[in-house]
Amino acid sequence: MVHTLESRARLGGIYVSLGLFALIFAFPFYYVFVLASWSNIYSNPPHVVFGSDLMVNIRALLTQVPFHVNFFNSLMIAVISTIGTIFFCTMAGYAFAKFEFKGKKPIMLFVLATMAIPPFLNIIPFFKMMVAFGWYQTWLPLIVPTLANAFGIFLMTQFLESSIPSDLLSAARIDGLNEFQILLYVVFPLAKPGIAILGTVTFIGSWNNFVSALIMLPNPKTSTIPVALSSLFVRSDGNFGGLMAGTAIALFPLLIAFSFFSKKIISNLTAGSLKA
């Protein structure tokens, strides 16, 4: 009896501590939607319930930046990146997961090792290259370089190792399918659950990307959401209602995507740490 009382108190303590941290982590998300609904975001004590000015703020935002253009750019870049990344990473992951070939181990290790290269190391020459390619102020630098990235390849290798029966591949070969047809008609359909995770993670990464967009699409009027919002904040006139509405809109797709796939994303993003 004493024991259960003690363990109940302990469990209660655990809930209180975890709950406090959960509140700290969740509050800013709630707060941005609250601020987005007040045209005057300043109040003392600060706002904590919803106002009714969301549409006013969205209209204000559209007069400050062409937010619909920014939204379209962010969305298109993220969608194209996601589709392309799914294709190239599944293809390479399939090779590592289901083929035996000379040099496979060192090649795989090399791919993994490239993840440790700090991204800013090549940023200045990369910029000059993009200018030379004629890719400056286009979407291409934000899409092409990461199409076949090490993280995605690693993720798909892990997934395909366990989800594609080798017998099925042999049967497809006996049926006369060539290797590329097998990739298209056998591997891709079976890879769907892995593709959902890779797709969500890629979309989130592209949607959130700031530095590349800042360098390659520096004009806020033709750039992505993060560049437009940050420039709006930097040249602020103190009217932040529109800015908060834009920030809330920028968060919305993420929260939706994450609410569907959170469990799978968390386990896949942390899986690498156990293998390291």
Binding site: I41, N208, F240, M244
Partner: peptide
């Protein structure tokens, strides 16, 4: 699972959004 999701949420949020919200906080 609720705690895990809530704890993980800040990590997947864009640095720009986080900064703009915290600027108000």
């Amino acid at each position: 699972d609720f705690f895990k999701t809530t704890f993980f949420l800040p990590y997947i949020t864009s640095t720009v959004s986080v900064t703009l919200i915290f600027a108000q906080l």
